[in-house]
C-alpha cells in the first residue's frame, strides 16, 4: 500500500499542532496542578495530562474509524499525527530515569503507575464512548 501525499502532509500538519499543544497545554497543566499539589517538589503533571488526554482522543479516533464514522485516512492523520505527537514516551522515560538516578523510587513508581493506568483507562473510555 502506498501512502498518499495527503496523508503525509496531514500527519506533518497535525503532528506540528500536537507538539505545540503538548508544549503549551503541558506547561499550563504542570504549573496549575503543581500549584494545588500537596508537595513542594514539582511532579511531571504536564506530561501526565497530555498523555492521558491524547490516549483518550486516540481511543475515540480508533472507535470512530472502526464504526465507519470517519474515513481511514482521517483516522490515520489524526491518530499518527495529532495523537501521536501530543503524547510522548521519551519524556516519561527521561523523567523516570532521573527519579531512579536520584533514588526517588516511590515517585518513579507513582509516575509510571499514573501514566500506564491513566493512559489505558483513558483509551478504554474513548473506545467505549465512541464504540
Amino acid at each position: 500500500m502506498t501512502t498518499s501525499l495527503e496523508t503525509l502532509l496531514g500527519i506533518a500538519a497535525t503532528g506540528a499542532i500536537g507538539a505545540l499543544t503538548r508544549h503549551h497545554l503541558g506547561a499550563f497543566a504542570h504549573l496549575s496542578l503543581n500549584r494545588i499539589a500537596v508537595h513542594t517538589e514539582a511532579f511531571p503533571f504536564g506530561t501526565l495530562t497530555v498523555n492521558v488526554a491524547g490516549s483518550f482522543v486516540l481511543g475515540l479516533v480508533t472507535a470512530l474509524a472502526s464504526a465507519g464514522s470517519i474515513t481511514l485516512v482521517a483516522a490515520s492523520i489524526l491518530g499518527n499525527g495529532f495523537c501521536g505527537a501530543v503524547t510522548t514516551f521519551s519524556t516519561v522515560a527521561v523523567d523516570l530515569e532521573r527519579m531512579v538516578a536520584a533514588r526517588r523510587f516511590a515517585r518513579a513508581a507513582i509516575d509510571l503507575a499514573l501514566t500506564v493506568v491513566g493512559g489505558v483507562a483513558a483509551a478504554w473510555l474513548g473506545l467505549t464512548l465512541a464504540g
Binding site: G15, G18, A19, R22, H23, N51, G54, S55, V57, L58, G59, T62, G79, C83, G84, A85, V86, T87, T88, F89, S90, T91, V92, A93, T115, V116, G119, V120, A122, A123, W124, L127
Partner: peptide, 16 residues
C-alpha cells in the same frame, strides 16, 4: 522531534 517521534497514546490503545 523526540516528543512527537515517541508516543504514549498508541501504547495505551494497544494495551487496551
Amino acid at each position: 522531534f523526540c516528543g512527537s517521534f515517541t508516543t504514549l497514546s498508541t501504547v495505551s490503545v494497544e494495551c487496551t
